[in-house]
Write a protein that binds this DNA or RNA. Structure first.
Lengths: 115, 115
DNA sequence: AGAACATATGAACAATTATTCATATGAAAG
DNA sequence: CTTTCATATGAATAATTGTTCATATGTTCT
């Protein structure tokens, strides 16, 4: 046995090398935070309703059978993750998908779940 | 005003139409469940350590400065989501990424966060 | 200005979940 | 077969988070 202190599969030097090749903690945190936003049924549903048309809060709530408050709370999270954008139209706020990443992410996710 | 009962942006018929174009609840649930697996810093870190090399549990734990137990618990979740696979090598379990979806998902996620 | 409507938001509660600790399983070596 | 090592797992705890309820903000209309 070459190294009696190494109780793992690879040697400590390689471990150190691998550790240093990891992205910074902050980047990994932001990444997981993004996924966490997608990781809720309600939010996924909201995003899906916006796939084809822009909608106001009340429409989304009716469409999903949820309360206005709950939808609004979740939209807030989607906004801060830059997954949806909005514009004011009189008393209403019209929400829409912010960019095509949302569609790609969901499509890619579906590919995996459909296997 | 055409329809005084419609307090939303679009008409009730369109809402119904949109509702029926949504994927089934089960599909959306599975999708959000998949994202939820990615939505944790520890699990993202584990996945990243497996980007370049297959590793045993102890190596991952050392690399990330986490307890063996915690890593094992999270690997269990990654396994059941089919994001990692494993093989036995004597006393050790060698884990590796299950397929390329993992890489694509993380890459796509990074594209969004890096904006 | 006041009423009505659409949306946002704060606090409280319930449910989910990541980590820790202790212990169990399973393989290899003496 | 007993000990040692690597991993898995169950129970308990602490922290996070989604929903509800009540209320605030901001817009339109009279």
């Amino acid at each position: 046995m070459i190294d009696e202190k190494n109780n793992g599969n690879i040697d400590p030097a390689s471990i150190e090398e691998l550790r240093q090749s990891l992205p910074e903690d902050e980047i990994l945190y932001d990444l997981s935070e993004l996924f966490r936003v997608f990781g809720d049924t309600t939010r996924i549903k909201i995003l899906y309703t916006l796939f084809e048309s822009e909608l106001c809060v009340n429409d989304i709530a009716q469409l999903l059978g949820m309360t206005q408050s709950s939808v609004s709370h979740q939209l807030r999270i989607l906004k801060s993750a830059k997954l949806v954008k909005f514009k004011r139209d009189g008393k209403q706020m019209i929400y829409s998908l912010d960019d095509d990443h949302v569609r790609s992410m969901i499509s890619l996710g579906l590919e995996h779940t459909e296997e």
